[in-house]
């Protein structure tokens, strides 16, 4: 079931998040990182659904049967980015060695005064970008986010940086995209994640890691309707305190003709899927969709 993500893994683990946050704020990053090992081990044993999702994904991306070490590494990578998310949110970027690739693209876009869609994914950490953009560089960024799904995370993390919380546009209300439209007109970079399908989303099918899978067309449709550029971003966690943030222009403008709309949306979404696959190959353990992404088990 592709909607399984709504339950995984953020939702069920309120106490773990609280614990990680407490450790991060009171114990320091070294303590936090040391404790990530037992926490990861616990999840490896207890979170069977997440483990199954991880196994299905790793089998596909590594091209072999993943062992316990691979599964551990995958969950540990996720836990590490959650811990770091806290430091990003409180603006402690100095702790990190962040390499930015093609950052000029973003600066040029901001200078142009025209808004754009910043399209990311659940590959790696989008918080790195959000913290860097909004807190350090004071770039005009807004993020589309499913508040209902992320309630726990949102509550816990927003308390750390209320100003950053203001930059969220909640998804799932009739006026959501009117708000996006206004933000784009005001020159905001509007961030969205394009790799998860929610109930009722319009979709297209793309080739992704060797199999057909549904992607939401929302972001491309939005860019098409608004006539704005689409810039991709990937915040890859490289171990230790290292993050690589990649920017890449996907489209200067997405032109949709009424009769060929579905076909054109499919072409652009496939390009996104191709780039996602490219970056996923660079950092395979950064894939944070811990569910049956390719719908293999219900087949």
């Amino acid at each position: 079931m592709r909607q399984d993500w709504a339950r995984l893994p953020e939702r069920g683990n309120r106490w773990a998040l609280r614990l990680i946050r407490w450790i991060a704020l009171h114990g320091g990053r070294a303590t936090g990182r040391a404790l990530l090992y037992p926490i990861t081990l616990y999840f490896l044993l207890a979170a069977t659904a997440a483990r199954r999702g991880s196994r299905l994904y790793l089998r596909r991306s590594l091209g072999r049967e993943p062992g316990w070490r691979d599964l551990f590494r995958h969950l540990h990578c996720f836990a590490a980015t959650i811990l770091d998310r806290i430091y990003f949110l409180i603006g402690q970027l100095g702790r990190f060695d962040v390499k930015i690739f093609d950052g000029q693209l973003i600066l040029d876009q901001v200078a142009s005064g025209q808004g754009c869609i910043l399209l990311g994914s659940h590959l790696g950490s989008f918080e790195a970008l959000r913290a860097l953009g909004a807190t350090v560089r004071h770039l005009p960024i807004k993020i589309l986010m499913k508040i209902e799904h992320n309630q726990t995370v949102t509550e816990l993390l927003d308390a750390l940086n209320p100003a950053l919380a203001q930059t969220i546009i909640p998804i799932g209300r009739p006026e959501t995209l009117l708000q996006v439209q206004e933000s784009l007109e005001q020159g905001f970079l509007v961030g969205a994640l394009g790799d998860r399908v929610a109930q009722g989303d319009k979709i297209v099918h793309c080739q992704f890691l060797g199999q057909t899978v549904a992607f939401p067309v929302g972001p491309m449709l939005l860019a098409g309707l608004m006539g704005c550029p689409v810039i991709l971003f990937f915040g890859l966690y490289r171990g230790g305190n290292r993050y690589d943030i990649h920017f890449e222009r996907l489209a200067e403008r997405i032109v949709l003709e009424p009769r060929r709309r579905q076909e054109q949306l499919a072409v652009w979404t496939q390009r996104y899927a191709d780039r996602l696959e490219h970056y996923l190959r660079l950092a395979p353990y950064n894939w944070f969709n811990f569910y049956d992404y390719w719908d293999e088990e219900s087949a």
Partner: peptide, 27 residues
Amino acid sequence: DSIDALELALAISKTYGFQLRSDDKEN
């Protein structure tokens, strides 16, 4: 859905010459 609302808002603005606002309490 929300993307339909946006398309509808764009069409309304083209046809009837006014814009639906997201912060409109009447929304």
